[in-house]
Structure formats: structure tokens, C-alpha cells
């Protein structure tokens, strides 16, 4: 049952993680205007939340494509190490966050014994992951000093973002890549043959 990682798999995940990293940076730059707008209201942090789901994409993509225990966590860790190599002020803290995100996302899928990978499961995983990462923020980032109402607002935006990026975009990406024929030999492509038009 355990997934035997081959160099091919590692590179596939790492290359897509690199794309997600660039996507995130692009969104952060695009969000500069929103941040500037929100700073006077003390809500600058909120401007990061719409893109928060992108952080979980590597793990979501990994587990969706490979569908074996641990693949989500390992994929998220790979992404975190690459992000760490890119050089930013978080440094190795990203690896810790990546671990939390990877475990958070895989939780629901593990409870379903890695058998179900439909839209609902991915949405549930995204929701649980958002809540878990908010818990992590409460402890590590000191968010427990913030009023609960504001935290709920942030969590709500994060939930929408996670569902959008990790349940919808990731599934479309995985299915699309499988249909393009570059994911031969992965679990996601096997499912494709049985139900070719599950997604329209």
C-alpha cells in the first residue's frame, strides 16, 4: 500500500510545486493594491487569505494524483523545501507550516482510507485543512490575541479560497494533466478510464 517514490514522481511533484509557488507569488503581487487598501483598517492580514488555498495545492495535487498514504504530506514538504530554497524571510519556518498543511489536508482522505477522491472529499479536506492551519496560526503567529470575530472572517475567506484552489482548481488540473497523457501510471489516470466524463 505504501507509495514507492521514484525520481520521476518526485520531479513531477516538485515541478508542479514550483508552478504553485510562482502562482502564489504572482497573486501576492497582484494583491498589493488590496493590501494597501486594507492597511488603514488594520486588515492587511486579511488580504493574504484569498490566496491561502494555493499553499495547500501541492499537497492536494500530490494526494489527488497518487492517492496513497503519505503522498500529500510528502508533496507538501517537497514544495516547502523548494520555497525555502527560493529565499524569503520565513526560511525554515515554511517547512513546519508545510508539514501542518500536508497533514491537515490528508486527514480527511486518510479517514476515508484513501478510497474516495470525489469533489465532496476534496472539499471536506480543504475545509479541514483551513481549520487546522488556523489553529496553527493561533499558536505560532499569536492570532489568539486577535478578536474571534476577525479570526472568523479570516477563516471564512480562507475556507472559500481553499475550496476554490484545492477542490476545484487542483482537480481540474489533475484531470486535465491526466487527459493530456502526462500522468500515465498514476492513480488519477486509472480512474479516468473508468469514468471518462466525470468532469465536464
Amino acid at each position: 500500500m505504501r507509495f514507492q517514490w521514484k525520481l520521476k514522481d518526485i520531479l513531477m511533484i516538485a515541478v508542479s510545486a514550483a508552478l504553485f509557488g510562482v502562482l502564489y507569488l504572482g497573486c501576492v503581487y497582484a494583491g498589493v493594491f488590496l493590501r494597501g487598501l486594507l492597511i488603514p483598517f488594520g486588515l492587511e492580514r486579511l488580504a493574504y487569505e484569498p490566496f491561502y488555498g494555493i499553499f495547500f495545492m501541492a499537497g492536494a495535487f500530490g494526494i489527488y494524483v497518487m492517492r496513497k498514504p503519505g503522498t500529500g504530506v510528502v508533496a507538501e514538504l517537497l514544495a516547502a523545501i523548494i520555497e525555502c530554497l527560493l529565499g524569503n524571510f520565513y526560511g525554515p519556518i515554511i517547512i513546519l507550516s508545510g508539514l501542518v498543511q500536508g497533514v491537515g489536508f490528508e486527514l480527511v482522505i486518510a479517514l476515508k482510507r484513501y478510497k474516495k477522491f470525489d469533489r465532496l472529499t476534496m472539499i471536506e479536506a480543504a475545509v479541514v485543512c483551513s481549520v487546522v492551519t488556523m489553529g496553527y496560526n493561533l499558536v505560532i503567529s499569536g492570532y489568539n490575541l486577535i478578536a474571534p470575530s476577525i479570526l472568523c472572517l479570516m477563516l471564512a475567506v480562507r475556507l472559500v479560497s481553499a475550496v476554490f484552489f484545492d477542490a476545484f482548481t487542483t482537480m481540474r488540473l489533475g484531470d486535465g494533466l491526466a487527459r493530456a497523457g502526462v500522468l500515465k501510471g498514476y492513480a488519477v489516470a486509472e480512474g479516468m478510464d473508468q469514468e471518462p466524463e466525470e468532469e465536464s
Binding site: 493590501r35 492597511i39 488594520g42 492587511e44 492580514r45 524569503n88 524571510f89 490575541l145 486577535i146 478578536a147
Partner: peptide
């Protein structure tokens, strides 16, 4: 690399100032 950290800290500062818990 310090600039984004300082902006983030300033954002958090204002957030704490306006919306700290009771």
C-alpha cells in the same frame, strides 16, 4: 527581504491595535 517583513509587522500591529481580543 526585510521590507515585506516590516510591512507585515506593521499590518499585524494595526490589526492588534484595532481588533485585539477583549
Amino acid at each position: 527581504l526585510l521590507v515585506p517583513a516590516l510591512i507585515g509587522a506593521f499590518g499585524l500591529f494595526l490589526m492588534g491595535l484595532y481588533y485585539a481580543r477583549a
